[in-house]
Design a binder for these strands. Structure first.
Length: 559
RNA sequence: GCGCCCGUAGCUCAGCUGGAUAGAGCGUCUGCCUCCGGAGCAGAAGGCCAGGGGUUCGAAUCCCUUCGGGCGCACCA
């Protein structure tokens, strides 16, 4: 059976193993899948499975005996697998054939831009909602982290065969929008010496509001100032929000992030989607009246308290709009929804899951990833940020200071759930302390070596005829194995929704390549050896480029 | 008070959803440029995976509990 290029190798091995288990007369527990993984220890094979240990109990036989029976029943393409060994208490260690590694290397060189892509996601439609910052101010550093994470996740999912889209939910409706409108209005009036109410207590006092107001056509603004208070807020608010959204879009584009869709909350209100969703909740018996308000019985679904959907003043809450929004996402045909939220949205998760469930959707189809805060440092000193006073580091300022590459790479070095220390000084440092440069340097070095070879008159190596068996030193083989594991890594990072695994991998690959490079000359008097090493070098460059591409980080040819 | 996240080397963190002898970078100490890019490499030291109980063939990983951090608990978003 040939191995599909579009499927990670471990899927193939797991399938073969599953068949062998059945043939040997064992049965897996209901719904269980054979687990296959990369062993921590080198020397324990390229892949390993503990299936025999897991089966030993129900089979009432010693693990090693079970393992032996499975191995006996195991059959596999010898071009893929060299051998299967039983080790320790009953682990199955799979050793890949050198021929398979060599084929993989040829595949990378032949098609460098698609290596790592698989169909593991089987076309499942996923909507990733991220950033979704209020359109009442510039994007800040937490948004920058969310942008890096969400965009990398979308790229990862796509590379793994999911049909993923990225979306920004624009909160252009409700109290915040109104307060923003009032703030813009006041700044505009102040600049023109006109009388106006002070900025509300909870309004927006940042200096950017004044700068924004200065952009408004004076005649237009004056006309609006003549309107009643409520209309003033609405007009100035709508105008200001449109401008803020546009500038957020520009900032994100500059950061390398393009949303597939910007979804305005106002659309839901205008289309009557809230009423529809409320009706569905009522019909399902999850709504009741109390104290003049309409409540959602979210305690049914494990929430701590019931939540208000319609306030006693008749205005719907954000929760109801959010329910309508998520219903809308499902109606658009997405199989799964992922919300990437900031840590301040913690309290919403249970409520949102409850609403999704109450609307009749499988809660397993809705996942929330909570990113933690970013602590901004400059040379070890904490940089204070206070959104209230409008005194915070914006995404644009961050990019100005450290650049897109360093910013994105740093944000993706940690798991999303971990708080992140971001040291501005370290991010721009061009030294070994800075992992961005470590990886990018490896790429630049590779390009340089390839150019050097060409300059020496070395012919472009032919993958088909190359003696790849010459790549037998430990340092070469380590690089080769790591390259071959890239598609599996991408698939697992996508499945786990953990882009940081790519970052970790790239640091490791760069390190292994530096070691190889240090121990062996690429360009040697031996033409066959040179060709083999050039291919390995070329493939490494390609995979680094691919990996950085998944993170939205550039791979410079020279530094 | 209730709920969620976190606690791994001096520091910052990985550890692939329970596997074999817990890893990397930085920092510290010692070495390596006549040689394809030294923004690199080699080596040393550094650990009761916060503490305690449990689950099982097997736990940093799952459950309970204590301690210590972070964040949420609106008819704001």
């Amino acid at each position: 059976m040939p191995v599909a290029n579009s499927s990670p190798i471990e899927v193939y091995l797991a399938d073969q193993l599953t068949e062998a288990i059945a043939r040997a007369g064992f049965s897996l527990p209901e719904g269980a899948r054979v687990e296959i993984e990369v062993p921590r220890e080198e020397g324990h094979g390229d892949w390993a499975s503990a299936a025999a240990l897991a089966l030993a109990k129900s089979a009432r036989r010693p693990p090693r005996e079970v393992a032996a029976a499975i191995v006996k029943a195991f059959s596999c393409d010898p071009g893929v697998l060299d051998r299967v060994e039983i080790a320790g208490p009953g682990f199955l260690n799979f050793h890949l054939a050198a021929a398979w590694l060599h084929d993989t290397l040829r595949r990378i060189v032949a098609d460098p831009d698609t290596f790592g892509a698989t169909d593991a996601g089987r076309g499942e439609r996923i909507l990733v909602e991220y950033v979704s910052a209020n359109p009442t101010g510039p994007l800040n550093i937490v948004s920058a982290r969310a942008a890096s994470f969400g965009d990398a996740l979308v790229r990862l999912l796509r590379a793994s065969g999911y049909a993923a889209d990225g979306e920004f939910y624009v909160n252009d409706w409700g109290l915040q929008a109104e307060l923003f409108g009032a703030s813009v209005r006041t700044r505009f009036a102040e600049a023109r010496g006109a009388a106006a109410p002070a900025i509300p207590e909870e309004g927006y006092a940042g200096s950017y509001v004044g700068e924004l107001a200065a952009d408004l056509d004076p005649a237009q603004g004056a006309e609006w100032l003549a309107l009643p208070e409520e209309d003033q807020r609405r007009r100035f608010g709508a105008w200001g929000i449109e401008r803020m959204v546009a500038s957020q879009r520009v900032a994100l584009e500059r950061f390398g992030v393009t949303m597939d869709r910007w979804f305005p909350e106002g659309d839901l209100h205008r289309s009557g989607a809230l009423d529809v969703v409320l009706g569905r909740l009522e019909q399902a018996g999850h709504v009741y009246d109390r104290d003049g308000a309409r409540w959602f019985r979210s305690t049914t679904f494990g929430d701590q308290d019931d939540r208000v959907l319609i306030r006693s003043n008749g205005i719907p809450t954000y929760s109801l709009a959010d329910a309508a929004y998520h219903g809308n996402k499902f109606e658009r045909g997405y199989d799964r929804l992922i919300d990437i939220l900031g840590p301040d949205h913690h309290g919403h998760v249970t409520r949102m899951k409850a609403l999704v469930q109450a609307l009749g959707y499988d809660p397993a189809r809705f996942e929330v990833i909570l990113l933690q805060w970013v602590k901004l440092l400059r040379g070890g000193e904490v940089v204070k940020m206070s959104k209230r006073a409008g005194d915070f580091v914006t995404m644009e300022e961050l990019v100005d200071e450290v650049g897109v590459d360093a910013a994105r790479f740093f944000f993706l070095m940690r798991r999303g759930e971990s708080p992140l220390d971001f040291d501005l000084e370290l991010a721009v440092k061009r030294s070994e302390e800075n992992p961005v440069y470590y990886v990018q340097y490896a790429h630049a070095r590779i390009i340089h070596v390839l150019e050097f070879a060409t300059g020496q008159g070395v012919p472009t190596p032919d993958p088909a005829g190359a003696r790849l068996d010459l790549l037998s030193e430990p340092e070469s083989e380590a690089v080769l194995r790591l390259l071959a594991s890239f598609p599996s890594l991408v698939a697992s990072a996508a499945r786990a929704h953990e882009p940081h695994r790519i970052t970790t991998y790239l640091k490791e690959l760069a390190a292994k390549f530096h070691v190889f490079y240090h121990h062996h000359r690429v360009v040697t008097p031996d033409a066959s050896l040179t060709a083999a090493r050039l291919l390995l070098t070329k493939a490494t460059g390609a995979v680094i480029r691919r990996g950085l591409g998944l993170l939205g980080v550039s791979a410079p040819e020279a530094m």
